[in-house]
């Protein structure tokens, strides 16, 4: 019920036992437990891992089959209206009304978010449009925006009303390097008292930005914690070798290959091994990607 639960700055998002099975039998979430404190939290996982399902559930767009989500005293699943008052959501895939201009639509959302005073609203809308660098295009039809511009608009509406829970779902896919950098900087500015959940399959986004992370695949949380700590656990267990294409099958059978890459035309593999895997392998400093691939391989 509105007003029953409330959040205070610095509350953490507690997800317990969240399950969701779709009508056709796909088990998108199979008992997800997460503790997400204030600050940047990265949710890493391949496509189909259940990330979007989880994001939409937190954003009140979907009902889970079981489990709870709490933000401080706020019961996220029951008190949807309470969540929406403090929520900023940037969906993975969204559209706009093509015949309207950015100011009009953003103003509309601002009203819907609850900013009743016209002066305040105008100030907020103007500020956000400048912040996402759409000020020069603010009067143009949204239908004419490029993909990157539309994404920036999405960010602007997500930041309306100083939300305390921000969900961003695959935000940098489709952005060029410059736009990506700008976006990540923007997120970083948001503030430490806000819970920001960044769901992505791009490892670098998490590595660059997030103090906390979880790896999710097949509806399950494979690993959680701080990225630094995760990398530390892998130190001394990651190995590198350059091989021919034809040898790949062979290596796969004999080792736990966690990643294959082409570097200047040669195949480079990373392998996980508690001890030295053998000749041709060299120890390599692990990074978050190794952590990610190792977790996935282990779960498969």
């Amino acid at each position: 019920m509105p007003g029953e639960g409330h959040t205070t700055m610095g509350d953490r998002l507690e997800i317990r036992g969240l399950t969701k099975t779709y009508g056709n039998g796909v088990r998108a979430l199979q008992g997800v437990d997460l503790d997400i404190p204030a600050g940047m939290f990265g949710l890493l996982g391949p496509n189909g891992a259940g990330k979007s399902t989880l994001m939409r559930t937190i954003a009140t767009l979907q009902e889970p089959d079981g489990g709870t989500i709490r933000l401080g005293a706020l019961d996220v699943l029951r008190d949807k209206d309470g969540v929406r008052r403090i929520l900023g959501y940037l969906p993975q895939d969204f559209g706009v009304y093509p015949h309207l201009d950015a100011v009009t639509l953003l103003d509309h959302f601002a009203t819907l978010k609850g900013i009743a005073d016209r002066g305040e609203r105008r100030a907020v809308v103007d500020a956000l449009l400048q912040r996402v660098n759409l000020w020069n295009h603010r009067k143009k039809r949204l239908g004419g925006y490029s993909g990157g511009m539309r994404q920036r608009f999405g960010i602007a509406q997500a930041l309306l009303g100083a939300p305390r829970l921000i969900i961003v779902d695959e935000p940098t896919a489709g952005l060029d390097p410059e736009e990506r950098t700008r976006f990540l900087n923007l997120l970083a500015e948001i503030g430490e008292q806000v819970v920001v959940v960044l769901s992505t399959h791009i490892v670098d986004d998490v590595a660059d930005l997030c103090a906390n992370m979880a790896i999710i695949a097949g509806g399950r949380v494979l690993q959680k914690g701080e990225p630094r700590a995760a990398i530390d656990t892998l130190r001394g267990k990651t190995w590198r070798k350059v091989i021919d294409k034809g040898e790949l099958e062979d290596h796969r059978e004999r080792h736990m290959v966690i990643s294959t890459r082409l570097v200047a035309g040669r195949t480079v593999i990373h392998v996980f091994d508690d001890g030295a895997p053998g000749q041709g392998f060299g120890a390599v400093e692990p990074d978050l990607e190794d952590v990610y691939f190792t977790a996935l391989r282990r779960a498969a």
């Binding site: 939409r56 954003a59 009140t60 767009l61 209206d81 929406r84 008052r85 929520l87 959501y89 969906p91 895939d93 969204f94 559209g95 706009v96 009304y97 093509p98 959302f109 819907l112 978010k113 609850g114 999405g154 509406q157």
Partner: peptide
């Protein structure tokens, strides 16, 4: 137009 996710997450 796939704008539902923007509207339904507002407190309305």
């Amino acid at each position: 137009m796939r704008t539902y996710s923007l509207f339904y997450t507002c407190p309305i």
